[in-house]
Simulated scan of single mutants.
Amino acid sequence: MKFAFLIMGEFDSEKDRQSIHGGAAQIIGVSNIEEACREAKQLQREGIDCIEVCGAFGEKGVEAVIQATDNQIPVGYVVHLPKQDKLFQALFG
């Protein structure tokens, strides 16, 4: 299985990327949803089996990635439990 995890923040997807396990697992930093969708389409063309995105995407961002890949591959969404809301708010604002 080939897997990618997209994280969003102050990243440049051309430089902020890494792979392990012979390229089977990748992490790619993107700066916005549009860049994430472009990366997701490219990953799909390269035969990725699954994409996971960080919580910064929000539900609308996850939907955009699903739409960009024509709902043809699984796209997961990393979130936290509500009891940790204050901790995440303090960290990310």
Rank of each mutant, 00 (worst) to 15 (best):
M1Y: 07
M1V: 10
K2H: 03
F3M: 11
A4L: 12
L6R: 11
L6C: 11
I7G: 11
G9C: 02
E10Q: 07
E10Y: 01
E10C: 01
E10V: 00
F11E: 03
S13Q: 02
E14V: 02
K15D: 06
K15G: 01
K15C: 02
D16N: 08
R17N: 08
R17D: 00
S19G: 03
I20C: 02
H21L: 10
G22E: 11
G23Y: 11
G23R: 09
G23A: 09
A25P: 05
A25S: 14
A25Q: 14
A25I: 13
A25H: 14
A25M: 14
Q26S: 14
Q26E: 15
I27G: 10
I27N: 12
I28K: 13
G29P: 10
G29S: 11
V30W: 10
V30A: 06
V30D: 07
S31W: 01
S31I: 00
S31F: 02
N32C: 07
N32K: 00
N32R: 02
I33A: 05
E34H: 05
E34D: 13
E35P: 11
E35A: 08
C37S: 06
R38K: 15
R38E: 15
R38S: 14
E39Y: 06
K41F: 01
K41D: 03
Q42T: 11
L43I: 10
Q44Y: 15
R45M: 08
E46L: 13
G47C: 08
G47V: 04
G47H: 12
I48Q: 05
D49S: 13
D49M: 01
C50T: 11
C50F: 15
I51Q: 07
V53M: 04
V53A: 05
V53L: 08
C54E: 13
C54Q: 12
C54I: 07
C54F: 12
G55P: 10
A56C: 03
G58D: 05
G58W: 04
G58M: 03
E59D: 03
G61M: 08
G61I: 04
V62P: 03
V62M: 10
V62I: 08
A64R: 13
A64K: 13
V65P: 14
V65C: 13
A68S: 12
T69E: 13
T69M: 12
N71C: 08
N71H: 14
I73P: 12
P74I: 00
V75K: 08
G76F: 08
Y77D: 03
Y77F: 15
V78D: 09
D85P: 00
K86Y: 05
L87G: 09
F88T: 03
F88D: 02
F88E: 02
A90M: 07
A90L: 06
A90W: 03
A90N: 11
L91W: 06
G93W: 00
G93A: 02
